[in-house]
């Protein structure tokens, strides 16, 4: 039985995140750092040109000094820690609900008919519109902030999970059924693995939106956190701290997204 066939030619190399040489990975990382550095340079030039007052656009050195000041006062870690905590707790709750409801709506046509329109309608509510209600119901503690983050994380996770499970290749589902898979077996062996890449992508989107909603929550009612630093610096005319808060939010958002990006890579690896 010599059925020598050559394997199909691998598809043309796409910009694949997985497993190119270590050197290339570093090169890509370095390339990604070029625009921020250019931005920093332009910022320095513009600030030095005198076109704006330092109250409007402090030079990078002032922002670095502001960073040192916050570290010295011991406030920086407090702000970062509370913001990260709000995002993680809120995100965990929101993503869990998104996965559960998304799975229900994705897998069950009756549940989809019943729930999908309502959830879609709620999804269109802008983040800030929730804030007064949450404050009214939950006071001004941690609960309303975490809840708002949860709301933000929920929708992308819900939407992608529901869509991914509802659109699993029907041929694979039929194959699974023909080989005796039903219920939990079909779910764990066909539906979930097939939907996994989209679901993980949804988890990433949800995290990004969680950060977005965090700032909305902290801008309005808080005495700590990076959003508070933003609004407080506006009130006190500390533009350097304002820019610092923005840079820190970008950094934290990017870091948490990269962590989930690693997970996504693991899930997708080997499929293409």
């Amino acid at each position: 039985m010599t059925l020598a066939e050559t394997p199909a030619q691998a598809p043309p190399e796409e910009p694949r995140p997985a497993a190119p040489g270590r050197g290339r990975a570093w090169a890509r990382l370095a390339a990604g750092l070029i625009p921020p550095l250019i931005l920093l340079g332009v910022w320095q030039l513009v600030a030095a040109s005198g076109a704006y007052s330092t109250a409007q656009l402090p030079p990078p050195a002032d922002v670095a000094a502001g960073l040192g000041e916050l570290i010295e006062r011991g406030e920086l870690w407090r702000h970062i820690a509370i913001s990260v905590q709000r995002v993680l707790l809120g995100y965990a709750a929101g993503a869990a609900c998104g996965l559960a409801l998304g799975a229900l709506v994705g897998l069950s046509a009756p549940a989809r008919a019943l729930l999908a329109p309502t959830v879609q309608a709620l999804r269109t509510v802008p983040s800030l519109a929730w804030v007064p209600l949450l404050l009214l119901w939950m006071g001004i503690g941690e609960a309303p902030k975490q809840t708002l983050v949860a709301i933000g994380a929920f929708f992308p996770v819900y939407t992608t999970t529901a869509a991914a499970l509802a659109h699993v290749d029907p041929q694979l589902v039929e194959l699974g059924r023909a080989y005796g898979l039903r219920g939990v077996g079909l779910l764990t062996k066909v539906l979930l693995p097939a939907a996994a890449p989209s679901v993980v992508n949804g988890l990433r989107l949800g995290l990004a939106q969680g950060w977005l909603f965090l700032v909305a929550a902290e801008l309005i009612a808080s005495s700590m956190g990076l959003g508070f630093v933003l609004i407080d610096s506006q009130n006190t005319g500390r533009t350097d701290l304002m820019l610092l808060a923005i840079a820190l939010l970008a950094l934290l958002g990017k870091t948490s997204d990269a962590a989930l990006g690693l997970l996504e890579r693991r899930v997708v690896r080997g499929r293409t």
């Binding site: 194959l175 059924r177 005796g180 062996k189």
Partner: peptide, 28 residues
């Protein structure tokens, strides 16, 4: 209903792309 005494091969291989060939065969 689905009969365990039958095994079907379709026109398309319908392999699970996330499984190796061995794990796909094991599905049967």
């Amino acid at each position: 209903g689905i009969d365990p005494r039958c095994a079907v091969v379709f026109q398309e291989p319908r392999l699970m792309p996330w499984r190796t060939l061995a794990r796909n065969v094991a599905l049967g």
